[in-house]
Computed example of a mutant assay.
Amino acid sequence: MLALAPAIVAADGQWSTLSQGRTCEAAARSVGTVYKDRLPARASLSFDAGGPRHGQLAIRLSRVPRAGATVMLTIGDQPFMLMSQGDMAWSRGPRQEQAIIAAMRRSGGMRVEARSPGGGRIVDRYSLDGAPLAIDAAAACSATLVNR
C-alpha cells in the first residue's frame, strides 16, 4: 500500500503544519546550507491523534555525528540534551517536550549541535518565525483526528 503524501494544514514564517494519517506535525528545515548528496536538516514536533506523541521533537541532523556524541538543542540560551541514533535526535519525554515548546514560543531561533566523526562541529540553525502557529495548528489538527 502506498502512503499518501502529507497534507499542508497551515504555514507561517519558516514553519508549516503537516497532516499524514493519524499524525500532525509542526516542521521546518534548517536555515543553513543544503547539500546535494544529503537530506536537509529538519526539525518537527509530532502530535498523534489519541496516541502517545503530544509534541515529541524529532531532528534530522545535516550530517551523521560521531558515534556516542552528545546532541544538544539550544533554544535562546536554554540547552536541552537529546537522545540520538545515526543522523536523528529526539526529545527525552513529555516534561522535556513541554519545556522545549515553551522555549520555542519565546525565542527567535534554535540550534542543534553535535561532533562529527572527524571531531568538527555540526551546527544546524532554525528560525522560529512561525513556530507557535505551526505548533498550535498541529495540536489542533491531531485533536480533530481523534473524533474521526
Results as ranks from 00 to 15, higher is better:
134 A>H: 02
108 G>S: 14
57 L>T: 05
15 W>R: 07
138 A>P: 12
135 I>S: 06
102 A>R: 13
52 P>R: 14
147 N>E: 07
58 A>Q: 15
28 A>K: 13
113 E>M: 10
113 E>F: 00
91 S>E: 05
108 G>W: 02
31 V>A: 15
12 D>K: 14
75 I>R: 14
54 H>Y: 02
49 A>V: 05
138 A>C: 07
147 N>P: 00
48 D>M: 14
102 A>H: 08
111 R>G: 01
125 R>D: 09
121 R>G: 01
143 A>N: 12
31 V>T: 13
60 R>L: 11
141 C>D: 11
109 G>C: 00
85 Q>S: 15
25 E>I: 03
86 G>H: 15
45 L>H: 08
101 I>W: 02
63 R>P: 00
22 R>S: 12
101 I>V: 13
105 R>K: 14
70 T>N: 10
110 M>H: 01
72 M>A: 11
51 G>Q: 10
92 R>A: 10
2 L>D: 11
58 A>G: 13
27 A>Y: 07
137 A>I: 03
90 W>R: 06
113 E>W: 00
12 D>R: 13
16 S>K: 14
5 A>H: 12
32 G>Q: 06
38 R>S: 10
41 A>M: 06
79 P>H: 01
141 C>E: 09
131 A>Y: 08
43 A>R: 04
125 R>G: 09
108 G>Q: 10
40 P>S: 00
46 S>E: 15
87 D>Q: 08
20 Q>I: 04
106 R>M: 10
123 V>G: 00
80 F>K: 12
127 S>C: 04
64 V>H: 09
125 R>S: 15
17 T>M: 08
28 A>I: 10
135 I>W: 07
122 I>A: 05
61 L>W: 03
90 W>P: 06
148 R>D: 07
146 V>Y: 09
16 S>A: 12
45 L>F: 15
46 S>F: 03
79 P>Y: 03
86 G>P: 13
15 W>H: 05
5 A>N: 14
14 Q>T: 05
95 R>E: 14
115 R>N: 07
33 T>I: 11
44 S>A: 02
104 M>F: 07
13 G>E: 02
134 A>I: 03
111 R>W: 08
96 Q>W: 02
119 G>Q: 11
119 G>H: 07
34 V>Q: 15
78 Q>W: 02
20 Q>T: 09
146 V>C: 04
109 G>Q: 07
97 E>F: 03
64 V>F: 05
29 R>G: 09
35 Y>I: 04
18 L>T: 01
1 M>S: 12
128 L>Y: 04
135 I>G: 12
81 M>F: 01
37 D>W: 00
17 T>K: 10
138 A>D: 05
36 K>H: 08
96 Q>N: 10
125 R>F: 01
146 V>L: 12
45 L>M: 12
67 A>V: 11
35 Y>W: 08
110 M>C: 13
38 R>P: 06
99 A>K: 15
8 I>S: 11
109 G>T: 01
34 V>I: 14
